[in-house]
Amino acid sequence: MNQKKKKIRAIVRKSERIAENIFSMELFTEEPLSVRPGQFVGLYPDGEDKLLLRPISICEYRKETGILRLVYRVQGGGTKEFSGWKEGKETAFLGILGNGYPVEEIAEKAGGETGSVLLFGGGIGIPPLLALARELSAKTKVTTVLGYKTEETFLLHEFEQYGPVFTATEDGSCGTKGTVLDAVRENGISGDVLCACGPTPMLRAVKHFAEGRDCYLSLEERMACGIGACLACVCKTTDIDAHSHVHNARVCVEGPVFAADRVEI
């Protein structure tokens, strides 16, 4: 399962804007990849003034077509450059990075076909959950709650093929007005295992809401190397971490997905 990390050559096959500041890019790679939901790649801007990789979560990967889909938010100069990349553009990304969600373990803890998993996605934390929803839906019941700023939603309908989907928006223009947890309360949604990806306040709230249930959180942190060497992207852990023997796990290697009770957020 642990494939070698390397620079992987890719060609842009499709790039489109799917919501305000949100872009979907399809990259074709000749070589077959082994990808788990929740893993990410490091995409590099071309400009020589920008050196560092942009860690971008993998939305989906289809082995049969060789298409790796990234859905990202334009946040600064690097991602702005990506949004301008056209079909045929050649690049090389660093991959495949991070641990990803342990799909088998999650499905098993949920109780398999008779159980259920509740997915929480907030903003740009939504994309990696799509592949997770797909893989989990083959093993257990999946319910998804997605939080957006406004009614300008994205990926929403793609989630619907894997189970019921509820939404929450900050301005109330689509679904429940408020947070993903407001949507849970309003709709009486439940789940045996919880998985979440999104802004830290949301992750914190989901962790609290889990109340003893198994819960997996995907964290985000500023990175430099993406492979565990520079120790920039650490998060606080409850246990002594294996690498530095303090309480700092590396989000890029031990994460980005952590069991909620292992991290302090």
């Binding site: 050196l51 650490v234 530095s244």
Partner: peptide, 28 residues
């Protein structure tokens, strides 16, 4: 001894380079 290092964010990109303030996290 092991050092915890600094709080995050520990890195930032700047024109033609980067800033880091890892704070020498190491296992001892």
């Amino acid at each position: 001894h092991p050092w915890e290092g600094n709080p995050t964010p520990r890195v930032a990109e700047v024109y033609g380079g980067m800033l880091n303030a890892i704070g020498l996290q190491n296992p001892g």
